[in-house]
Amino acid sequence: MQGTNDGAALALAVLVVGLVVRQQLRTRPVRRIGSLVTPAVLGVLGVAGIALGVASVVRDHRLATLPVVLLVASLAVAAGFGVARARTIRVWRGPEGEVLRKGSAATTGLWVASVGVHLGLGLWIDDAAGAGVLGAVSLYAYLAIGLGMQNLLVRGRAATL
């Protein structure tokens, strides 16, 4: 039954990432609050996931320092990718004075690279922990930090227009 749960979790993660990337490629207004709603929801899911991941590790082992350091490094990498992606998003004033945004092919490429890096770090975290799924379940926190950083920077650029 665990394999079924893993498959469902993977399918949900792919769906969430796909929806986030799809949104990036659409022309849409830069909103004052709206751009932080998705990262906030992902952040709540991320905190819950990390708590469950820690519980899965400490159930069988003591949580060592290396997986924690790798997790923190992973979240810092997420912020770095958010900064890089923000630079690939076009921000302009529309015909009615509204501020618009739209990601590019480079934005998509950075999303794909970001998720790939997280998957690699997640495997390393889980290997270093020796048990549990801390690396795998930190995806939502990773997305929240990366998307939140990206959206804050895009909002900052929009404010200067």
Rank of each mutant, 00 (worst) to 15 (best):
M1L: 13
Q2Y: 12
G3V: 13
N5F: 15
N5W: 14
D6F: 12
A8W: 11
A9Y: 14
A11N: 03
A11V: 10
A11L: 15
L12N: 00
L12D: 03
L12M: 12
V14L: 15
G18P: 07
G18D: 07
G18H: 06
V21A: 10
Q23H: 12
R28Q: 15
P29D: 11
V30D: 01
V30R: 00
V30W: 01
R31Q: 14
R31F: 13
R32D: 13
G34H: 08
S35Q: 14
L36A: 15
L36N: 08
P39C: 09
A40Q: 11
V41Q: 01
V41H: 06
L42M: 07
L42Y: 00
G43Y: 09
V44G: 10
A48D: 09
I50P: 03
I50D: 02
V54E: 06
A55W: 02
S56L: 10
V57F: 03
V57A: 02
D60Q: 09
H61W: 05
R62V: 15
A64G: 10
L66D: 06
P67C: 05
P67G: 05
P67A: 05
V69K: 01
V69P: 08
L70T: 04
V72T: 04
A73Q: 05
L75P: 01
L75Q: 06
V77H: 04
V77C: 11
G80T: 09
G80S: 06
F81V: 04
F81T: 00
G82E: 05
V83M: 09
A84F: 08
R87W: 12
G94D: 15
P95W: 07
E96G: 14
L100M: 15
K102H: 08
K102N: 10
A105T: 15
T108E: 15
A113N: 01
H118R: 00
H118W: 14
L119H: 03
G120N: 01
L121K: 00
L121S: 00
G122I: 05
L123W: 09
L123S: 07
I125C: 11
D126H: 06
D127I: 06
A128S: 15
A129R: 02
A129Q: 04
A129M: 07
G130P: 12
G132T: 01
V133D: 08
G135H: 06
G135I: 09
V137Q: 08
V137I: 11
V137D: 03
L139F: 13
A141M: 07
G146F: 10
G148H: 03
M149T: 15
Q150N: 11
L153Q: 04
R155E: 09
A158G: 02
A158E: 05
A158S: 00
A159G: 14
